[in-house]
Design a protein around this nucleic acid. Sequence first.
DNA 1: ATCGTTATCGGGAACGTTCCCGGCTTGGCA
DNA 2: TGCCAAGCCGGGAACGTTCCCGATAACGAT
Lengths: 338, 338
Amino acid sequence: MDNITIKDIARALNLSTSTVSRALRDSYEINPETKRLVMEYAEEKHYRPNPIALSLKENRSLSIGVIVPEIANNYFSQTINGIEAAAYERGYHVVICQSQESYEREVDKVEHLAARRVDGLLLSLSSNTVDIEHLKSLHERGLPLVFFDRIPAEIDTHKVVADNHSGAFQATAHLLESGRRRIAHITSQPGLSITKERLSGYLAALEEYGVPFDENLVKYCSYTFDQVEDNLNALFALADPPDAFLTAADRLALRYYAGLQKRNTRIPEDVAFVGFSNLNVAELLNPPMSTILQPAFQMGQIAAGLLLDLIEKKPKSPVFQTVQLSTELHVRASSLPK
Amino acid sequence: MDNITIKDIARALNLSTSTVSRALRDSYEINPETKRLVMEYAEEKHYRPNPIALSLKENRSLSIGVIVPEIANNYFSQTINGIEAAAYERGYHVVICQSQESYEREVDKVEHLAARRVDGLLLSLSSNTVDIEHLKSLHERGLPLVFFDRIPAEIDTHKVVADNHSGAFQATAHLLESGRRRIAHITSQPGLSITKERLSGYLAALEEYGVPFDENLVKYCSYTFDQVEDNLNALFALADPPDAFLTAADRLALRYYAGLQKRNTRIPEDVAFVGFSNLNVAELLNPPMSTILQPAFQMGQIAAGLLLDLIEKKPKSPVFQTVQLSTELHVRASSLPK
DNA sequence: ATCGTTATCGGGAACGTTCCCGGCTTGGCA
DNA sequence: TGCCAAGCCGGGAACGTTCCCGATAACGAT
């Protein structure tokens, strides 16, 4: 594991490190013959510049960090692919981390990446993150930061989100139009931005169609603690039980799909079902699941692009924007009229 | 982004960097009072040691690299979770990369991680990797290396795999016992270790049950190039078409499940179906898919454990082992007898 | 012959740490 | 009174680069 360094080359060719360094970067002030010698020797010995030494000197790493709650989630893995595509194109490496929906892990990862001198950070908050001081101070100290999907209100920077309000509105309207009236909304932690936006879309649709809102139909779920059965039991114990479900995430959609089937509730006969989800298997489920699809890959691309812009033209402090991408409702068998 | 350094502390407290350094590491030869001063000042100013400077000096990073073909694959994301669990416990960070099933990307990622001085590398080969010189030379130069799942024969180091032979054997035997005779085997690139092992299990089962092998029933698929329809057409154009499918990966299982449904082939009436897969939705598919489940999380844990052992006791050159974990056949509706 | 130019190269500081050496006070003891 | 050993601390090299200054030589111009 002892790699060859510029010093080694210098010693071997009886040159100074400065000369070797310049020869390698093809500087004009080095004799072509010397350059050739250095280049050839470097090639032969597989010289690779030490990025750590460079990072130490330049205080940057030509890499960006990504922190997502979990990668075992189609939505996030698609986003990461978009990020990688954009970063790769512009010569940056991507370091991927998971917060595992844990606040402590998130803080740990953020600090680790910052200490490792990533040139910028892309992130989607963990569902248990309430305090974002760790990010705020980093941002104030000048670390370029772009949020996507689960964004905080308190930090002013670029953000990329799906149009959650309209996605939820569309889905709810679709359910209402196919004759449902008691739509259960299974959603994420109340603190998350996506939760609020989706709830507001849901409420707006109810209002538009003159259907009264019943807060008993809204269930906030932790991703980590499993209470599917309890929630379903509570919902179906209502005097007026749900005849439709609108779920807010891949994970929730699957859990409740399974939960409903376990209690032999028929979809879509007994209840209709629509999920916010980028599951690539929605079509293959039994029955095929109606989903609100988010442009995950594109979100990643855009977020990475914004971050790299931020990184590369640091001097002028930019006007931060929030990019909102539209969602697509895919109606499948799970939400057909009864 | 200007972080406080030991030098800053030294200057502020009128001490030397050596003293500050020692005070921070609680050295015995520093006056308790001085220690207190330094510690408090460091705390107040949020001093964090610069890991890059440390890496440069110590030639290590307290982090390990993981390269998988793609993270949008339940099998790999579960493995990564296992790796992270094990690494976290022992104080190491994990850097995740995707080769995207591309040889060039794999080489690039490997070199990048090595240059960044990861202390070791965990990897599962891309399906397009044939030449592994890049890994061989790294390994010879002393970089600890552990392979999992898709392993090369040419490098002697720790390896962690599922018992692919017996998994395929079990699944094939199960299909044969439920009355199938023409079992199509849809599998990965022929070069991969997992492909060979699974094929051998498939063949062994055929032989045990006295069913002749027909090479027309085996289809090798690239992950990147999509030829599902062609393959299905070819298979069903056979004089004696398949009455069962054994697929070798998450991705293939889903594609062919969808492909079969598109051509209105009934499962399990017309063909039975079993897939190597860690899909968490297998139960929810239509029909629920029989799968051969691999202990992905555990594989990650074990692989990471072996790697860390390798890293931490470098001096003695160990005896390398290949850990083989057993798979589990989960029979569901897709492979019921006709 | 002297001088300014150009072409080519080397020295050394700096990035943030650690650590080897060496140095200065004390104070205790002979 | 003198000496040695703690106890405590600073100087500086080293890790691999880059880059700012110089430095040296040759060479044409004055």
